[in-house]
């Protein structure tokens, strides 16, 4: 198939950006979206044009490095799929595809389609852990965890930190991301000792980073490639209120 791409180009964080139009010719159904971009980039290099910069690494939907706002949707048209797992059979000959970076104040653009998501790391530094030194653990089976809680904690823990939730949100809120981590630990016995401290610290950092407020619209969860449920946000709200009342700090 042959496609027309409208791609956001921006040479660095301070430069002004604009859309450029490129042709993608002889694209096969079996290609992944990023392989299609590889083909376009090879052609740009041949013509002496700088290739389009985009983040990617594992290309199997788990590292969370790929991003891209494709035709107005985070990670493209499919539900529960990262950009690297989106394949060209989802498009048809003659389509025009608009490709943009994540757009959020807390995610400044580095170049073209690459953004800086280190704000997510800093939220995790604030409290996304259980304080246990290596060697200090008891036997793994000493504390039984009800399967339902373990499964629910796992579901929340499958967040890949890609930032699609922020990109999809009209307010660029990071509540789904923070809610996922807070939920994982709140559901496990190991997470209890720091339960209040953690949620307060993480929410505090989230606000400091400039992420927007949550209005429970649900775009984040709808666009999440790992289908993190909206219930993690309600749990985050409950945990936050609970901690605000109980915290001794």
């Amino acid at each position: 198939m042959n496609l027309t791409l409208k791609v956001w180009r921006q040479s660095n964080a301070n430069a002004e950006g604009n859309f450029e139009t490129y042709d993608a010719k002889d694209i096969s159904d079996d290609m992944s979206f990023l392989e299609m971009l590889d083909v376009v980039n090879e052609q740009l290099i041949e013509k002496g044009i700088e290739p389009v910069a985009f983040d990617h690494d594992c290309r199997e939907g788990i590292c969370g490095m790929c991003s891209l706002f494709i035709n107005g949707r985070a990670h493209g048209p499919l539900h529960g799929v990262t950009t690297c797992q989106l394949h060209m059979r989802s498009f048809k000959d003659g389509d025009e595809i608009v490709i943009e970076p994540w757009r959020a104040n807390a995610f400044p653009i580095i170049k073209d389609l690459v953004v800086d998501r280190s704000a997510f790391d800093r939220i995790q530094h604030a409290g996304g852990y259980i304080s246990v030194n290596t060697g200090a653990a008891q036997d793994a089976n000493a504390i039984p965890v009800p399967k339902q809680n373990a499964d629910e904690a796992f579901e929340a823990a499958t967040c890949i930190g890609c930032g699609a939730c922020v990109a999809a949100c009209k307010n660029s809120s990071a509540m789904l991301f923070v809610g996922a981590k807070v939920s994982q630990y709140a559901l496990l016995p190991q997470g209890q000792p720091e339960r209040e401290k953690r949620v307060l610290a993480m929410v505090n950092e989230m606000d400091a980073e400039g992420f927007g407020a949550c209005t429970n619209t649900g775009a984040c969860s709808a666009e999440c490639p790992k289908e993190i449920p909206l219930s993690v946000i309600s749990r985050l709200n409950r945990e936050y209120i609970r901690a605000s009342l109980l915290s001794k700090d």
Partner: peptide
């Protein structure tokens, strides 16, 4: 102990 949610 770190909160890794293994299958149970």
């Amino acid at each position: 102990a770190q909160g890794v949610p293994f299958a149970r």
